[in-house]
Amino acid sequence: MAEDLVLDTAIRDWVLIPLSVVMVLIGVLRYFVSKLMRSAQIPDAKLVKEGQVIVRARNLRAAANFIPPKSFRARRLYYSNEENGLLYVPKGQAPNAQAQMFSDPNMAMDMMKKNLSMIIPQTLTFAWVNFFFSGFVAAKIPFPLTQRFRAMLQNGIDLSTVDVSYVSSRSWYFLNLFGLRGLFSIILGEENATDDTQRMMQMTGFGFDPTKSLGAEKDGLDIVQHDWTMPKFERRAEAVLRKLVR
């Protein structure tokens, strides 16, 4: 086992530093490009309203016991009657998210723009790193690590004898890709950081269906047992006052 691999200073000057600098520059560039391509989004009227309906219905469910029974019944009817209740979704009318996406070209366009600004630079830089810097041992971290980290730190080097604390160039690329977020938030301002990981999360969360939560909210409202707490409060108020007067 090679105890001490001596790393050439030229590797530092021509691999490690250029790689980091290029990654930062690409991040900044991508931010500006995506800013150019971003179209001002006007939220869909129905979506906005549905979100608000859900909030209001949730409030009703949570605080139902604070209003008189008559008012509660009127509200419940308003929300969940089968003709034009706010929470009532007619069967078969619930739109399929997938179908909606294809029927609305704008939506697909936005998705594509987002993806393009993310995927194209990534593939290009990855190809560039692979072509020029494959197989370099670019850096050494100053503490020992267990074998499990080999896949993370020595991507591209298929040697089991090299100590795990050495970092290969391709791994350095990945570390930069995901680790530069803090730096971007300093350079580009707090909320402007291009955050790949978060974007990926959004991608997977796509297809959220508000009509489903409308239905769930309606079911929740239907089973609420109304029990007006105010009569209890009278007795409690008496106790409060008794303490105050004494």
């Binding site: 105010m230 009569p231 409060f233 009278e234 108020a237 008496e238 409060v240 006052l241 105050l244």
Partner: peptide, 16 residues
């Protein structure tokens, strides 16, 4: 009667 109950709950919430 309802008004009285809500006054009572105000007393309750403000500690009188």
């Amino acid at each position: 009667q309802a008004a009285k109950k809500y006054y009572a709950s105000t007393i309750n919430l403000t500690g009188g």
